[in-house]
C-alpha cells in the first residue's frame, strides 16, 4: 500500500483571546496517503484555514499528533519549520502571492533561494522545467502584470512544484478565477495528481470538490464527513462542456 504522507491524530488548536479561549480545532484525525487528491471543505469559521496553516507548518497545534512524511512536526522550532516548508511543502494561495515586477522564472525560483542544496544553474533549470509542466514554457520572462489570473496561478503552481514537495497545499486556489479558468486549473491539478503528486485542496465550492478523490468536511472544528469520492469528474471533460461564448470573453 502507498505510504502515509500526513497523519494527524486528535489535533487541537486553541487561541487565547483575552479572557476567552477559542477552540478552533477540537480534535481532528485523518490520514492522507501518497497520491491522494483531498479536498477540505467547510464554511467560514469551520477551522479549515487553521487546519491548513498547521498542515503547512506555518502554525503549531496546541495538542495532538501531526506527522508529515514520517516526521513529527509538533515539537519543531521556528527555523526547523521553515526548513520543512522549504523542502517538503508547496503552497498555493487564493491571491497567487507572486512578486510584482518580477519575471515568472524568478518567481518560480523563489523557494530555492532559501535552500542551500541547489546551485544557481540547477535552480534556473528546475524553474524552466516547472513552468513547462504548467504550460507556461513560452512565458518565462513575463511579469505577473503581463499575465492573466489563470496564468498567474499557474506560475504559483510551478513555484509550489519546484522543490519537489511531498505535498501541495492549495488554499482556495480557484477562488479568484472565473469558471473556465477554475476548471483549467483543476485540470492541471488532476494532471499533476496523475503524475503522483499528493494534493490537499481547501475550498468551499462543492463543484471543485467533485474533481478530487476524497472530501473532508469540517464544521465547528470537527470532521463531520470524510468520504472517498466515488464519482470523480474530469475537469478536462467539464471544460469541454462549457458554452463556447464563455471562451470568447
Amino acid at each position: 500500500m502507498s505510504r502515509e504522507i500526513i497523519t494527524i491524530v486528535d489535533l487541537k488548536r486553541d487561541f487565547i483571546m483575552g479572557p476567552e479561549t477559542v477552540h478552533a480545532l477540537k480534535g481532528i484525525s485523518f490520514t492522507v496517503k501518497e497520491g491522494e487528491f483531498v479536498t477540505i471543505m467547510g464554511s467560514s469559521g469551520s477551522g479549515k484555514s487553521v487546519l491548513l496553516h498547521i498542515l503547512g507548518c506555518l502554525d503549531r497545534p496546541t495538542s495532538g499528533i501531526y506527522e508529515l512524511d514520517g516526521l513529527n512536526v509538533k515539537d519543531l522550532c521556528k527555523d526547523e519549520l521553515a526548513t520543512i516548508r522549504n523542502e517538503k511543502i508547496g503552497f498555493i494561495f487564493q491571491s497567487y502571492n507572486l512578486l510584482a515586477r518580477t519575471s515568472a522564472i524568478e518567481n518560480v525560483e523563489l523557494p530555492l533561494l532559501y535552500s542551500n542544496k541547489v546551485s544557481s544553474a540547477e535552480q534556473r533549470e528546475r524553474a524552466i522545467e516547472a513552468l513547462e509542466r504548467v504550460g507556461l514554457g513560452n512565458r518565462l520572462h513575463h511579469t505577473p502584470g503581463q499575465l492573466s489570473g489563470g496564468q498567474q496561478q499557474r506560475i504559483a503552481i510551478a513555484r509550489s512544484l519546484i522543490n519537489n514537495p511531498v505535498i501541495i497545499l492549495a488554499d482556495e486556489a480557484t477562488g479568484n478565477l472565473d469558471t473556465r479558468n477554475s476548471y483549467e486549473i483543476m485540470a492541471l491539478f488532476q494532471k499533476l495528481n496523475k503524475q503522483g503528486i499528493t494534493i490537499i485542496f481547501v475550498t468551499h465550492e462543492p463543484d471543485i470538490a467533485s474533481f478530487s478523490s476524497r472530501t473532508i468536511v469540517l464544521r465547528d472544528g470537527l470532521v463531520i464527513q470524510n468520504d472517498k469520492n466515488s464519482n470523480i469528474l474530469s475537469a478536462e471533460d467539464e471544460l469541454a462542456k462549457l458554452p463556447k461564448q464563455d471562451a470568447m470573453l
Binding site: K78, A82, T83, N97, L110, Y114
Partner: peptide, 16 residues
C-alpha cells in the same frame, strides 16, 4: 509585509 509572509511560507527563515 505580504511579500515577507510569502517568503517565510516558502521557507525563508527569520534570519534570512
Amino acid at each position: 509585509t505580504k511579500e515577507i509572509g510569502l517568503r517565510m511560507a516558502v521557507g525563508g527563515k527569520g534570519s534570512d
